[in-house]
Write a protein that binds this DNA or RNA. Structure first.
Lengths: 330, 330
DNA sequence: AAAATTATCGCAAACGTTTGTTATTCAAAT
DNA sequence: ATTTGAATAACAAACGTTTGCGATAATTTT
């Protein structure tokens, strides 16, 4: 069965294509009676306009591209859900591609976006490798690029991200409040700038405001590493009383060790993490965390995209504020 | 900056559009020397073909639609990741829309798919409400529909899903192996056919093969409900020694209660669930589970889609087999 | 009653491709 | 020297829309 087209409708109604087209968009030139006829037939033949023909004619695709390292990710999927919702409300569809942390895939995805003449792209850089020139070219072609989460250092782009330093500091504040004596702070992949920022902010804050608290700093790039780091540090003579986890992956490893060693939270040990909230709520007591909401970030990214598409370039770096969510783990 | 087109290339090279087009696709009619020139210029002006013009001409969009209830979902996101990967390998792009369990959104998404002339759609029904006619129409228009996970009863469609009954039976088998005396079996939303199937299979198997085991059956539509159900049942005089969780949501609730009451796994109580594996591995000891892999299902769905697009209609219902993954919880 | 306005609609070009057909050139075969 | 046949490239139509402009008929104004 072939698709219904304007031409088909026009033939059936003995009208011209242009009249049918205008009737369907409620153009004032067309009489009410013809509009009624046209709409009726369009309905019954369930006509749907061909988006490809429209974009070819209007040069406006109403499609936004999204590049994430991985869709299966607690943070990114809520980000995607948020922009999907906003996009739909505003008449845009989403084309979602994942880079799998692979710059080659990232490039390939960008190519697909260009072939599909997306009106804009949300991009999260695939780890450290920064091939910025391609994005620069998109901007030059008036395709706004909004970076999120993992953003380039370059300030020629629009960027939205969590207030990374504030997150770390907020965690530190609560550790100090708890009257911790000996803290283990586990950070993520040390190649990521986000890790470096958070670590630096955390360290500085602790030194400035609670120099007598003994802190050991480590990195763990995976759940497994976190599990092992935790195990090592609880076997030492002087037991740690509080552990800070920079990511969900780390928290999971830490919690596995805590459960294995049957440590009581929060009496034996306090736990605090940075998370979007899903993982911390899996345990009893619920883990206290500083919230980084992918959902909020998504909404912010979308308004930035719209702003970029309407007005001139607004090259700014926006951050969404962090919130401390108290569980029973501190 | 305007996009590079065939016309532009043709003008620069003093060639016709058709020659440029053929040169770029390595058509035998074109001489090697012109091909070289064309490719060089196309490269330097970084020409990317306009996907919209191509689809308009060829009537083949190379885009597949996906409808899921929610992207942020442990199961669906791995499904999406799988078909995304397969699609990319086969030159397809994905258009992902979420229904948010809302039939109205589902309809709207279908409309967007039709406007974009997707070559096929993967669909997961939004809960119980089944508005099948729309899908029937798509099939009539030679747009293959592959249902996954939550599928219609109708057998006029191609469907892929987990082997639901086998999952439940496999769990039952392992419960019997454990020598359980008193079992609490918690199932999901009782309106879903998937729940009914699993429950029936589980019950029948237990009665047939281990009638002396005392089983209580309940439903819990959310994590909270599961938490409460679990709490109630552990306070009874005759303690349960094994709990079965049909979904991740239920497992999370159950585990929260277990941690709160400080029950030891697997000595005080055994736990088994049906899951894709992420949640069960968050705990120590790791929870034993019957695996329902969104990833496997995605790959299966994709080959079904390809089969439908090539040959004639292959209206079958395929299932991916379940696997028991032993943790330390039984 | 002629002129001016308004209401309604059709014509045709354009968006960027692909592809069947035709035209040109040039060398090989008769 | 003419015919044949490759090799190479141009022409033109079509895909389904949108939209400026022109055309016709109906209505109003003078």
């Amino acid at each position: 069965m072939t698709n219904t087209t304007l031409k088909l409708l026009a033939q059936q109604l003995q009208l011209s294509i242009s009249t049918v087209s205008r009737a369907l968009k409620d153009h004032p030139d067309i009489s009410a009676s013809t509009k009624a006829k046209v709409n009726a037939l369009a309905q019954s033949m369930d006509y749907e306009p061909n988006a490809y023909a429209i974009q070819l004619r209007t040069q406006n695709s109403k499609i936004l591209g999204v590049i994430v390292p991985a869709i299966s990710n607690l943070f990114y999927d809520s980000f995607i859900a948020a922009i999907e919702e906003e996009s739909r409300k505003n008449g845009y569809a989403l084309m979602i591609l994942q880079s799998s942390h692979n710059p080659e895939n990232e490039l390939n995805n960008l190519k697909i976006f260009r072939q599909n003449r997306v009106s804009g792209v949300f991009a999260c850089l695939s780890s450290s490798a920064e091939n910025i020139e391609v994005y620069q070219k998109m901007n030059d072609r008036d395709i706004p690029v909004v970076f999120f989460d993992i953003v380039p250092k370059d300030n020629k782009f629009t960027k939205v991200r969590m207030a990374d330093e504030r997150c770390a500091i907020m965690a530190a504040e609560n550790i100090i409040k708890r009257n911790a004596k000996k803290v283990l702070a586990i950070f993520g992949d040390e190649n990521l700038s986000i890790t470096q920022k958070r670590k630096a902010a955390f360290q500085k804050f602790m030194q400035d405001f609670a120099p007598k608290i003994h802190c050991s700093y480590t990195n763990a790039a995976s759940t497994k590493e976190a599990e092992e780091v935790m195990k090592k540090n609880t076997h030492k003579t002087q037991k740690i009383d509080t552990v800070f986890c920079m990511t969900d992956e780390i928290l999971i490893g830490v919690m596995r060790t805590i459960q294995e060693l049957e440590l009581k939270i929060p009496t034996d040990i306090g736990v605090i993490s940075i998370s979007n909230g899903f993982i911390p709520n899996l345990y009893y007591p619920r883990i206290s965390y500083v919230e980084t909401s992918g959902h909020e970030l998504g909404k912010l990214a979308f308004v930035q995209m719209m702003a970029n598409m309407k007005g001139g370039k607004t090259l700014t770096e926006l951050t969404v504020e962090a919130k401390f969510i108290a569980g029973g783990s501190m």
